[in-house]
Nucleic acid binder design. Structure first.
Lengths: 218, 218
DNA sequence: CCTACCGATCGGTAGG
DNA sequence: CCTACCGATCGGTAGG
């Protein structure tokens, strides 16, 4: 569909401008200029400025959730998907999840991957949700909460197993998640640190932040 | 001076609205309405909307820097101020600074204190610098760099002394600093976690993030 | 701190 | 995707 690819070009231009100047600080005409068309011509493809923001935010939320799902599924975590891996040789009644350290590492690497893959979209998702309409904001709020809850559950699990240091799971999850999201403020594609190296560094920092000092898992 | 306190009221109203809706998303008339005056009446006290933003940002930058200075000075760090503490009994030629772990803890606690003390101002400082005019943005950029450099220096020092794990000091400082700044997105005065408890939790998380696993300093 | 007002720009529509 | 245009709102000024 031609329409779909043009729509994608518009959202790409919009997300990079929203990233630079914010949603409220970007005019519809600036988005149009980046595409070399007239401001009014944009409305042949989108119904409103809010429509563009909403598409970008939803698509990015999808990407974050899919990446987290895939990362946990690759570990053989039966909680991460509706149907568990039939090749798994673990007894589902005894220990259904891999160790919390591995799960935390997987979640952090997945999150960093999504951010570095498209810094503009990730930045809009992280910063511009305040500009969403009330109902859209509420919907994204629920999805964010569920996403953060998953990280919190890993930390709580690690604490209960004694792998992680005693801390406040809510504060620890917020600390780590905001650090990961903070990447949108300083990561630059083509910079000194490549996405893979950043994922390694951030996974190590996040894991150490919650892990017991006397653990020598890595 | 009456004028100064009225000016402060205006900046308080502005920072809380900038915090909620962003600089570009807040109109001068909305700020005026919060003060129960007409939009045009604001210009008896400020010269422009940008002028309000700049005052808030400068004042908050001052607070962050002063808090960090005081925190390090209280440890007896001779680098933290122009004139060193005459009561200090440490030999300035051998080891002029306290251990990196204490310095990191002090900086984190100071930062969290500034954020929790006025979440609106801190939020504007963290999020709205993109809305500053070019020259103002450049000036704040330099001050932010210097502030972050100080944190980086502590981390590098800790690595060289062997107290901290091998990591990338730039990435580690950014990780920690963005986690601290992320507080403006979820800290709420009067919430479950009080400023003191938050400072303790965040200091522990930041310290563990960079510290060697086999260290048992705390 | 007010009323009255300014030019510029905003998001969006009509009609092709 | 264009030209032409809309009402609303923007930051800010004049003059009191």
């Amino acid at each position: 569909m031609v329409e779909t690819s043009r729509r994608r070009e518009i959202e790409d231009a919009a997300s990079s401008l929203f990233h630079e100047h914010g949603y409220a600080g970007t005019s519809v005409r600036e988005i149009a200029r980046a595409l070399d068309i007239q401001g009014a011509s944009l409305y042949a493809h989108v119904t409103s400025k809010q429509d563009m923001l909403w598409s970008i935010v939803v698509r990015t939320a999808d990407r974050f959730e899919a990446a987290a799902d895939a990362a946990l599924a690759a570990l053989g975590d039966s909680d991460s998907d509706a149907d568990s891996d039939p090749d798994s040789d673990s007894d589902p009644d005894v220990k259904r999840s891999p160790d919390p350290g591995s799960r935390l590492t997987a979640l952090v690497r997945a999150h960093v991957g999504v951010v570095t893959e498209d810094i503009g979209q990730a930045s809009v998702f992280v910063h511009e949700w305040r500009s969403l309409s009330a109902s859209h904001r509420a919907e994204i709020g629920r999805r964010r909460d569920a996403y953060e809850h998953r990280l919190r559950a890993v930390i709580r699990d690690g604490m209960e197993r004694g792998d992680f240091a005693a801390t406040d799971p809510t504060a620890a999850a917020a600390f780590i998640l905001t650090a990961l999201n903070g990447l949108v403020g300083w990561y630059r594609p083509g910079g000194r640190l490549k996405p893979g190296a950043l994922a390694d560094l951030y996974a190590a920092l996040a894991l150490r932040a919650v892990r017991h000092l006397d653990e020598v898992t890595q």
